[in-house]
Amino acid sequence: MTLALLARRWRTGVALLLTAIMLFPVYWMLTVSFTPEQDMRKSPPDLFPVHGTLDGYRAALTEQLPYLGTSVVIALGTVVLTVALSAPAGYALAKLRPRGAGVLNFVLLAAQMVPGIIMAMGFYAIYLDLGLLQSIPGLIVADSTIAVPFGVLIFAALMSTIPDELLQAARTDGASRLRTFWSIVLPMSRNGVVTVSVFAFLWAWSDFVFASTLDNGGAHEPITLGIYHYIGNNNQQWNAIMATAVVASIPATLLLIVAQRYVAAGVTAGAVKD
């Protein structure tokens, strides 16, 4: 075995170990999802659910799938809206030097500091007047407020690394700003698009505050509300809760693995002649 191959194998081993440590709580969640009610507080706890039960999964699979679908729709909608709003703004802040950019930067930072519950209360009032309560588009717009300021700042930071010469070259060739953005900047910002998309997806997926304030009782609820069906007023069914979380994580994890493959290496290498 060559030294390089050995090094690669060793790295994979270390990576597996690190991942295992990081994901141990997730393993624990899996364990709880198989634990029957009477063993929940066993002391000392079983590392492996020896007397496992499938009750939690039965409950999750028969009741939670519609909520899962709704969550996917909302999360994907949020991704599209967030990227559409924040990419052009990030480009402008990074490359076009508008006057008052400082103010906008400041406002974007301030916008992220408002606590979620305050935002939700404000949205409740607005949506009640507009009739958008308990609707999916309304929730998509609300969830995007978590991700858009972040998206603008990330796009600005990553797009600022695109060499000015490239854009200058396009301008002298006669391309309009819009054309430059669409044909050069956006493709080169693949990392940025994937990063912002991943975050927008995850934030919308795990959002609870907006869902609970704006969509409770609606025809289509996301999974974060669906889980609360197992938190009754006096009793909680923990194996069902954890089972729902496991079932919900699988499609999202698959999407993430696919998305990560698109983060390309060395985007600017060779693009500009030395």
Binding site: E37, Q38, D39, M40, R41, K42, N235, Q236
Partner: peptide, 14 residues
């Protein structure tokens, strides 16, 4: 403990 987790302690036979 919530009342639920307290009950789980009891149900585990501890």
């Amino acid at each position: 403990n919530t009342q639920t987790t307290s009950w789980q302690d009891f149900a585990a036979g501890n």
